[in-house]
Design a protein around this nucleic acid. Structure first.
Length: 214
DNA sequence: CACCAGGTTGACC
DNA sequence: GGTCAACATGGT
């Protein structure tokens, strides 16, 4: 089974996902930080609170009172570090200029984001793909688990290359594929067991990580 | 009551 | 370059 046919199968199973749920690109960024190790339902509540207080813009958030932010995002956990991370990200956007961010290449934006406090591989790639809409494949815990069930293991960049090397460089495809993997993971991949999928046609594909290690 | 959630960091091999 | 405890609230 090819990587692309896996996508087709997931699309047939779950239908269009329409990620990322947000009204603006900056809201995507905020959500990307808040959803770290956190359920999306709690993130939505926090974002609703920030929005109600007019803090969902780079300028407003970077100047906001820490206590106010913390109050809004408490339900997402890790609120102390996330308050700091949100302000660091907002300040970064203000400093660089939001339009300039979306205009630069995905690779350059990714590298700059990785320099921001609290932004690691997955958060950076989520922002590049869903906010800046540049083709980079996002690898998360569900992706790892799903591939692990299929007998494929590797580092973040190895797994990322597996998808990028076997798919057309298409932003909409990347967006939808990752969302579908999460949908699948939520239903079938618990942390404990991921083996027995009731899907009859669940394949044991011979996916391989190609190329040499970085 | 235990375990887990759309990770990242700093410390330490 | 890879592994691991902390970080914290809310749901099952």
């Amino acid at each position: 089974m090819s990587v692309y046919s896996l996508y087709v199968m997931l699309e047939e199973m779950f239908g269009p996902q329409g990620w990322w749920p947000a009204e603006t690109p900056f809201e995507v960024m905020v959500g990307a930080v808040l959803t770290q190790q956190t359920r999306w339902e709690n993130v939505e509540r926090a974002i609703g609170c920030l929005k109600a207080r007019g803090l969902l813009s780079p300028a407003a958030l970077s100047n906001a009172d820490d206590g106010t932010i913390r109050e809004c995002i408490r339900c997402t956990g890790f609120y102390n570090q996330k308050t700091k991370r949100l302000k660091a990200l907002a300040k970064f956007v203000v400093d660089v200029g939001e339009q300039r961010l979306y205009a630069m290449s995905g690779e350059q934006l990714r590298n700059m984001l990785l320099g921001v406090e609290g932004v690691g591989y997955e958060t950076a790639d989520s922002i590049v793909l869903y906010a800046a809409e540049k083709p980079v494949f996002v690898i998360d815990a569900y992706t790892r688990r799903m591939l692990s069930c299929m007998g494929v293991r590797g580092t973040y960049h190895e797994l990322q290359r597996l998808f990028e090397a076997n798919l057309p460089r298409d932003v909409e495809l990347y967006k939808e594929f990752h969302a579908l993997i999460v949908a699948f993971g939520k239903q079938w991949c618990n942390k404990k067991r991921c083996g027995e999928c009731p899907i009859p046609s669940w394949p044991k594909p011979e996916l391989k990580v190609e190329g040499e290690h970085p």
